[in-house]
């Protein structure tokens, strides 16, 4: 090891600066990377529509699964939003439908968007929705209220240990933000 020259220092410094910038970029790259990862592994509930005509009902009447429905709003949202039933006992392989009720508390029209979440995550792949108000934006006139339908079927392949599945929706009312989602 001899004394360094300024050129050595420059070259190594440059390498480290490039590494710094690359890691700064990597921080941002983590966002799409995580999304892809979560969708491949089924960690995140992808908003996927199951084609109703493709569904063949094969009810497994020996098995009963409890489905819980949960409705969330962010604090201060100008909505009323709740499930019409909070719990249902279902047989895997059979189509069911339920509704969520929403009311616009403002005296002007707004658009909302619901994002679904399914827990436990292991149930994600087996909870198929043939119809859901979360597939499209929901436009509400001034003070309008209505029931919004969800039709779903639990795949009989649902792992044995899952006996309760929670379907929770968060309903966002901010028009601009909701449209940014798609």
């Amino acid at each position: 090891m001899t004394q360094n020259t300024p050129q050595d220092n420059k070259a190594l410094t440059l390498k480290l600066v490039v590494m710094t910038l690359a890691m700064f970029g990597f921080g941002f790259a983590l966002v799409p990377l995580y999304s892809v990862f979560c969708e491949i592994t089924g960690i995140r509930s992808a908003i996927v529509e199951t084609d109703a005509s493709q569904v063949i009902e094969t009810p497994d009447i020996d098995r009963e699964v409890t489905i819980e429905f949960v409705a969330n709003r962010i604090a201060g949202a100008a909505w009323e939003f709740e499930p019409s039933v909070t719990k249902m006992k279902v047989h895997p392989g059979k189509l069911y439908s339920t509704t969520f009720f929403a009311r616009n508390l403002l005296d002007r029209p707004i658009t909302g968007l619901a994002t679904p979440d399914i827990k436990p995550a292991a149930a994600n792949k087996y909870f198929q929705k043939t119809e859901c108000f979360c597939f499209t934006e929901q436009k509400f006139g001034a003070s309008e209220s209505r029931d919004m339908p969800v039709r779903f079927i639990i795949d009989p392949e649902l792992p044995e240990h899952v006996d309760t599945v929670t379907l929770s929706y968060t309903f966002y009312s901010q028009t601009e933000l909701a449209s940014a989602a798609r």
Binding site: M19, M23, F24, F26, F28, L30, V31
Partner: peptide
Amino acid sequence: LVAVMPVLAGGVTM
């Protein structure tokens, strides 16, 4: 430090 401080910087920038 070189590997993770930039990631924090990215996170708080977001």
